[in-house]
Amino acid sequence: MSKITPEALKHLAKLARLELTEAELAMYATQLEIILDSVDKIREVAAGDVKPMSHAVGLTNVFREDVIRPSLDRAEVLSQAPATEANRFRVPRILNED
């Protein structure tokens, strides 16, 4: 189970938008196998009907009322952007439609 092929690792890197070098791919493949070997042991725990714990608090139904609050100052927001144009964030061309 815990074998990660170079192809699988490349696929993961693509999903995660990480450009990895061959050297990095080799290093991570080895390290991930070691880590996965050590985490594999949780699969031995019989937890069939246990409820998954996705939160540390038992809160439910936390909402806000539908009230408008002030937005940020546009100039301050755009001042942090790598590129802007016409008060919008400028981004490189997009090849794939969503």
Partner: peptide
């Protein structure tokens, strides 16, 4: 809490 009003100036209803 940002407003949803249609047609506002770009990036003025952001937080």
């Amino acid at each position: 809490g940002c407003s949803t009003e249609f047609g506002a100036e770009p990036n003025t209803q952001v937080c």
